[in-house]
Design a protein around this nucleic acid. Structure first.
Length: 309
DNA sequence: CGTTGAACCTGTTTGC
DNA sequence: TGCAAACAGGTTCAAC
């Protein structure tokens, strides 16, 4: 379900509904998608939700310190005064609940009296009588309690924010690589937040075949790709994401961006630019939709041709 | 460095 | 109608 625009939609919704609420207690169902279930039970009760951030496809619920944490925070602050020079830490450290929605995850508050869904596996009682619930049929998501001291380390292996990445950095991350452009767009250590839908949509707009190699893009093509990707992500966020089957925003409304898809899910339908039927093939292990005319296949290299003969 | 395929799960759609 | 296969917005890991 969720890529950057959908996760951003959920995060914005939660900011409206649960910011400042305190978690009184927590109840768990199946826990195989939770890093350390006992840590949740031990550390969440009593904490206030002070902020909801998005990091790639992850949501970060920033939690208040407890008394014992505040003591630790004091000594930490003292240490940081000494050595605050070289930190890759993209964020201020706070105890946090890390949530990834996987393919089918939902995180939303509900009145405690409301019957829960079949696949709800986490219930967090809030101080206003509601419950913050996590529901995920496939359990491909991930939930983890992260202590303040571990937060920076948890966020290290991520690439650039696609909405903020500069022309120079984007080119450096793409044009040096021999992997397929589709694989690079999906690689969270290259760019954080792009998934299958927005990869295909941006490649269609940039007229690039998904199997083109990163190194094969010239500077102009890379810059076009960056620009269309940002434009698509911004518009998708404005329209509350794409609802293919079951994604709903905080108000229970589906997103609207699926109506603007030009490639994803359109196999056999005609290209909006040239009327050629859209093709679907597997690239980087994922269904990839593209226009065979607007997005011509890359020319095989000499070695590749020799081998496949 | 890269790619591929399988695995993790459940639900829905497609095809015979 | 029924049943099996294919497929799904994600990530990870082994094998090559």
């Amino acid at each position: 379900m969720p890529e950057l625009p959908e996760v951003e939609t959920v995060a914005r919704g939660l900011r409206q509904t649960i910011l400042g609420r305190r978690i009184l207690s927590i109840r768990l169902g199946k826990t195989d998608f939770i890093d350390d279930p006992a840590a949740l039970e031990q550390h969440l009760p009593g904490r206030r939700i002070d902020a909801v951030e998005r990091y790639g496809k992850f949501m970060l619920l920033r939690l208040s310190e407890t008394l014992s944490d505040e003591l630790a925070a004091e000594s930490r602050a003292a240490n940081e005064k000494m050595a605050s020079a070289s930190k890759a830490a993209p964020t201020t450290a706070t105890p946090s609940l890390l949530v990834h929605l996987g393919m089918t995850g939902q995180l939303a508050p509900a009145p405690a009296a409301q019957p829960h869904q079949k696949h709800t596996h986490v219930w967090m009682t809030l101080d206003d009588g509601r419950e913050l619930r996590y529901t995920d049929p496939r359990r491909f998501g991930r939930i983890a309690y992260i202590a303040a001291a571990s937060l920076a380390g948890e966020l290290t292996d991520f690439g650039a924010d696609p909405l903020e990445v500069t022309c120079e950095e984007f080119a450096a991350r793409i044009r040096t690589r021999r992997a397929r452009i589709k694989a690079l767009l999906l690689d969270q250590s290259v760019l954080r937040g792009v998934g299958n839908i927005y990869a295909d949509e941006s490649l269609w707009r940039a007229k690039l075949h998904p199997a083109r190699l990163g190194v094969q893009l010239n500077a102009r093509q890379a810059e076009t790709l960056r620009k269309v990707l940002q434009d698509i992500l911004r518009k998708a966020i404005a329209m509350h994401g794409s609802s293919i089957s079951d994604f709903l925003d905080a108000d229970g409304e589906p997103g609207e961006y699926q109506r603007h898809h030009r490639a994803y899910g359109r196999e056999g339908k005609r290209c909006y630019r040239c009327k050629t039927p859209i093709h679907r093939t597997m690239v980087a292990g994922r269904s990839s939709y593209f226009c065979p005319k607007c997005q011509p296949a890359p020319r095989m290299s000499r070695q590749h041709r020799r081998r496949s003969r």
